[in-house]
Amino acid sequence: MSFYQEKLKQVKESVYKNQDQIDAVIAIKGYIDSYYETNLNLDLLSEKQFISKYHLLRLFKKYYGLTPRQYLINKRIEKSKEHLINGSTVTESCFAVGFESPGSFSTLFKTKTGKTPTQFRKEQLSRSK
């Protein structure tokens, strides 16, 4: 092995020494992306990758800057926007993306977007005309 190959190997090992952890976090993110409308919780997500829920929480936050719950809420809000743009009612949109209460959905939506779902829907409908 040449000097450069040896140095490259050392750099790769130091940068990617936690590849299994990275793969687990990517898999959890992919699972959330695919099943965001279902009832997801930390216990279920940790079981999917056979990893401690507390360790998963730390790793997800480290690599994505959000907890799995925060990421799930953001994903649901983005998907609910798509439903509202396509003409769904606020209630239909709420339940379609996995929220259990229109009240909590509206509160979270307004917190994340600055508008209520109804305001957002009306704006989108007026733009499409």
Rank of each mutant, 00 (worst) to 15 (best):
P68I: 05
S80L: 02
E6C: 02
Q119P: 07
P102N: 05
S80Q: 02
V97F: 09
L84H: 02
I28E: 00
Y36M: 02
Q119C: 06
E100F: 06
F95S: 02
Q49R: 12
T89D: 08
D43W: 09
Y4D: 15
E100N: 10
E82I: 07
Y63A: 06
K75V: 11
A96K: 10
L108N: 10
Y4P: 00
Y16Q: 12
N39Q: 14
M1L: 13
K112G: 00
S52A: 10
E37V: 09
V25N: 00
T89N: 04
K7N: 10
N74E: 14
G87N: 01
H83C: 14
N74H: 15
K61F: 05
L84M: 03
I28V: 15
Y71V: 01
F120A: 08
H83W: 05
S88Q: 04
P68Q: 07
Q49W: 08
I32R: 00
K110A: 12
A27M: 07
S101G: 05
L72V: 02
L40G: 04
Q10Y: 07
T67I: 02
L66A: 10
S101K: 11
F50D: 11
F109T: 00
E6G: 04
L40Q: 03
K12R: 14
Y64H: 10
Y36G: 00
L56T: 03
R58S: 12
I77K: 04
T118Q: 15
L44T: 14
I77A: 04
S126F: 12
V15N: 03
K29A: 15
Y16I: 12
G103P: 05
S2H: 09
N86Q: 08
K9A: 15
R69D: 14
S80H: 03
P102F: 08
E100K: 11
S34C: 08
Q124C: 10
I22F: 14
C94W: 08
Y71W: 01
N39P: 12
E37D: 15
E13I: 06
N86C: 05
A27C: 06
Q10H: 11
S104E: 12
Y4N: 15
L8W: 02
Q21Y: 14
S46P: 03
F109R: 00
T91H: 09
R58V: 10
I51N: 04
E47Y: 08
N18P: 01
Q5R: 10
L125M: 15
Y16S: 07
Y71G: 04
F60E: 07
E78V: 01
S46A: 15
F3Y: 12
Q19H: 09
S106E: 08
L45I: 04
D43S: 13
K48W: 02
N86T: 02
P68E: 06
R76C: 02
L108M: 12
F3A: 13
S93W: 06
L72F: 06
I85E: 15
K7V: 14
V25H: 01
E82W: 05
L40E: 01
D43K: 10
K122A: 11
S101Y: 14
N74D: 12
L42Q: 13
Q49L: 11
L59W: 07
V25D: 01
N39F: 13
K48M: 12
V90P: 02
M1Q: 08
